[in-house]
Write a protein that binds this DNA or RNA. Structure first.
Lengths: 342, 342
DNA sequence: CTGAAAGCGCTAACAT
DNA sequence: ATGTTAGCGCTTTCAG
């Protein structure tokens, strides 16, 4: 074992409590004493034993960020910000990979990590409102992104319907009339995929266009590969789409690739829009038009809110802010954009 | 507080030690007793308090993976595997973002997280051999990737010289004669960028070609943006390159983008090769030829080795295996490749 | 402003 | 096969 409070206390000729107070600052300590203690700390190279502190305090200082996959750049970007934010508030953030699996999500929701983490920022994909309402754990929880709505927890997300409407309106404003949507999902009404589908439909309706089910592709997951597969099918239609709205940038990137493999010009024959604004979208060919959520704000809000709840701050009931987003036009819908811009 | 060992012991009418043994299995427990205890555990919903366990054991069950940035997909992919592996061995992995900053790397190396983590898997970028040799922390350490060589620690990496040689040979075999390298670095000899530069030079020499300093671009970091900038400069040369070997896939992707913005055909006028084989490279246009390291193996070896050291296994002195890699040919050097293959 | 001491929940050495 | 107990290092109440 290393240097403990006791070692410092002996060296400085004071009690344990005084050393603790120098370290934590809960109670005032006389200037001379403080200096003596500080010197001992520096000389012996003391660092607090966190396990002991946590045992005593009943908290671990760990919070988890549960996401479907770290290899989706959107989540990697979000995680990077959240890790920094948690660190600056004295917490350590650990990643939980659910792989978008129902069981993994459910057990995490219900306290799989009880006694390990003080709180959870959770981006669910498979579980729905019912599971969240039936939650059996009382670990503080903040939901982000993928939609489980109308539950008594803080929930940080963009307005998915509005964001999707904006994306599709953009395609329609370019004169496209056969706009496909890739990334629909069967099942729970409140899931983000449904909200994005709703925004898509609303934009069509606004423009007086019919909803064509054959232009809506359901995917198993939300990766590049899913975009490729769905796009290949869409291109096989008798009347293929002249535009695609992807559930996220990865799907949109897959769609672009499939279109080009099939010899279609993007954006000439098919215009493409995604959501997320991952860095990859600013450097590919063509660069991708997308809806850019404010990831900084989402991560900051989620982490701060969670920590406020952990520390028992008198925070108001569930917070469900709609964080800002904006449309970034790039080459995939016919706009110029140098590498890395937007 | 929740349910503790004591509660279970009382409920089951046994001692603390017995409950502990049912939970941990260190000592045999009679079948009837075990069942009684198990029932109590299930009924009361007991989960061990890890802080207490860690305090007692002198370990935290946490290991850290220190990388320059999570938003580099190579590291995100590596992290995802490492997290899974650590979890399966009963450890929780936390990410440490150094942002490639010297100070951050140095303090991490020297025990910034003492008492928090039991061990560290570290991918250094800035620090060199001297810093590692002067290390003041005794937390178990395993190095990966970016080269600090010839130090008394386990070090898992590919043979960077051989990998680079292979990449450049591939370009030369295509008949290219003005091959550029993007991602060189000033400073420490042993850094990966130097090793990759050495492989590049060796391949040129083998082919009887001169080393042309103007074709070697130093970059500040290793992102797409760095690739774009360096490539723009290279294209401004009187005799621009007809091929580019990028330090990694991100730089190569940036180079591709810059070439196309400048109206150059890839691979027609400029062929491009990277290193890492990130998923993005399999879906862009053109798909990217690259050196694919075995990420599974790197992550598995690093995590297992670290945990073996933490648990004091009698493991042999520093292990420095050269993990396998292979060349994956795709469109950026003139090979056909459907989306997602390779 | 400082000290003494209890006790957080667990594991492991020692008993039986 | 099971029980008893010390103590890991810290925070915090109670005393002074």
């Amino acid at each position: 074992m290393g240097v403990s409070l006791k070692d410092i206390a002996e060296r400085a000729g004071v009690s344990l409590a005084t050393v603790s107070n120098v370290v934590n600052g809960y109670r005032p300590v006389g200037e001379r004493t403080r200096q003596r203690v500080q010197r001992a700390i520096d000389e012996l190279g003391y660092t607090p034993n966190l396990s002991a502190r946590h045992l005593r305090r009943g908290r671990t200082g760990l919070i988890a960020l549960a996401i479907p996959e770290l290899t989706n750049p959107y989540f990697a970007e979000l995680a990077e910000i959240a890790i920094r934010e948690a660190g600056s508030l004295g917490y350590t953030l650990v990643m939980e990979n659910t792989a978008g699996a129902y069981d993994a999500e459910l057990s995490l929701l219900n306290g799989a990590q009880r006694h390990v983490i003080d709180g959870l920022v959770f981006s669910p994909v498979r579980i729905g409102r019912d599971e969240v309402l039936a939650r059996t754990s009382d670990t503080p929880l903040v939901l982000i992104g993928e939609g489980v709505h109308d539950v008594p927890y803080d929930h940080i997300a963009i307005d998915n319907v509005a964001a999707s409407r904006l994306a599709v309106r953009h395609l329609l404003a370019l004169g496209r009339r056969r706009v496909a949507f890739i990334g629909a999902r069967l099942g729970d009404e409140s899931q983000a995929a449904h909200l994005r589908l709703r925004g898509y439909r609303e934009a069509l309706t606004e423009a007086g266009l019919p909803y064509r089910p054959e232009l809506v592709a359901v995917t198993a997951r939300f990766g590049r590969r899913d975009g490729v597969r769905a796009m290949r099918d869409l291109l096989d239609l008798d009347e293929p789409p002249d535009a695609v709205f992807g559930y996220n940038d990865l799907i949109a990137i897959g769609a672009v690739r499939a279109a080009r493999e099939a010899g279609r010009d993007v954006p000439g024959e098919v215009a493409v829009v995604g959501i997320d604004d991952i860095e990859e979208s600013r450097f590919g060919t063509p660069t991708l038009t997308t809806i850019a959520p404010d990831k900084e704000q989402i991560a900051h809000l989620a982490v701060r809110r969670l920590i406020a709840r952990i520390e028992g701050a008198q925070v108001a009931g569930p917070l469900t802010p709609a964080t800002p987003f904006r449309l970034v036009t790039r080459e995939s819908t016919g706009f110029r954009s140098a590498a890395g811009t937007g």
